[in-house]
Computed example of a mutant assay.
Amino acid sequence: MDWLERTAKLRQWTRSGTRAPHKPLLLLYALGRFQEDADSRLRYSSIEQDLQRLLTEYGPPNRTTPAYPFHHLVSDGMWEVRTDHGHGSPGSGVGDLRTTGATGRLAPELRAALRREPQLLERIARLLLDLHFPPSLHGELCEAVGLDLEPAQAEQLSAVRRQRDRRMREAVLTAYEYRCAFCGYDGRIGTVPVGLEAAHVHWWAFGGPDDVANGLCLCSLHHKLFDKGVLGVDDGHRVLVSQRFVGHSPAARRHVVALSGRPLIGPQPGARPVAAEHLAWHTSQVFHGDPRP
């Protein structure tokens, strides 16, 4: 059985490019718990809050429930559920999962494969990260689910992976003249820029192209906040700051809150600005809540 192919083909709810990382987040969480204790079962009532935090922080802006992936991941052959009444999930209702003592864990065949081939766990985890989340979030997401992975290798993890265009970073940074489009940061060591990154507006993992019209040159801080939905860009190319962001320190006000309504810095004349369709995707799929006035 090709577990990488099965991982890549998880059935997910989709509509007009809507993000639905519910199953990938549950799988990453389960892999982290498998590393800790390969034989443990995960009682829904005990891990519900953990899963809800993951969905709130790394899922789509609309509110959702961890009961959905806990029940539906069974259909992908990678997860099993048992209740006080025996094998099988009682349904996707939160109350049903709680009152029946529902527990879940990786499917027996997958657990056996992970024991036979220790590297498989890391390959599955990296495939989930690559297919569903931007690179800026990989490290902290692994920490959030308790996954301990070796440094990433350049090898191809699966034939289903798209090839990134390595020229995009240089093209985007050049278009924005090596300055953060939000704050203007332009640090260098000698001639080498430091702390500047090419951010995909429409995430590459969700079909966003490696193209200047889908990119922003951002400093490391603002890239992370952009991918977490704290910051966005409106159709007039002005910075959005989520009302959900809370920061009382002078640094938080200066580096985040004060950006609200500020026009983007760049791109330089002749370079393509971010396309409207990519801005619309980010606003609907990543940006959290309403923007500050």
Rank of each mutant, 00 (worst) to 15 (best):
M1S: 10
G236K: 08
H288E: 02
G95T: 12
D227A: 13
W79V: 00
R6G: 08
V201E: 10
G190A: 10
S260W: 01
E277V: 10
H87S: 05
E140D: 15
S92T: 05
T283W: 12
P61L: 05
L196C: 07
V256A: 08
H237C: 02
R115C: 02
E140L: 14
W203R: 07
E150N: 12
I124W: 03
L141D: 14
G232L: 09
R82V: 08
A20H: 15
R33W: 06
L120E: 06
P209R: 13
S136Y: 11
P60E: 06
E197W: 03
Y44R: 06
H237N: 00
G289L: 01
L157F: 00
A280R: 12
D210F: 06
G59R: 12
V257M: 10
F226V: 10
C142T: 12
S136F: 13
L120T: 05
D50T: 12
G208C: 10
L51I: 07
G146H: 15
H200L: 13
T100L: 13
E122Y: 01
L129A: 04
E57S: 12
T103N: 03
Y185R: 06
S46M: 11
L121S: 00
V160R: 04
A159Q: 07
R6S: 12
A252M: 09
G95L: 15
N62K: 01
G208N: 13
P60S: 03
P61E: 00
P267Q: 02
A276H: 11
L55C: 07
A144K: 11
P135L: 02
R238V: 01
V192Q: 11
W3S: 02
T64M: 02
E122W: 00
H85A: 03
L129F: 02
Y29Q: 13
E36C: 14
M1P: 09
R244Y: 07
L10W: 12
N62R: 07
A213H: 15
A205M: 05
R15G: 01
Q268Y: 02
L110A: 08
L121F: 00
P135C: 02
E197M: 01
P21N: 11
R161I: 00
R116K: 05
P293C: 04
A38R: 12
E80A: 14
L196S: 07
G195E: 10
S75F: 14
G93Q: 08
P269N: 04
E80R: 13
R105T: 14
S260H: 10
Y29V: 09
Q12P: 10
D2I: 08
P69N: 09
P69K: 13
A30S: 15
L25V: 07
F133R: 06
T283L: 14
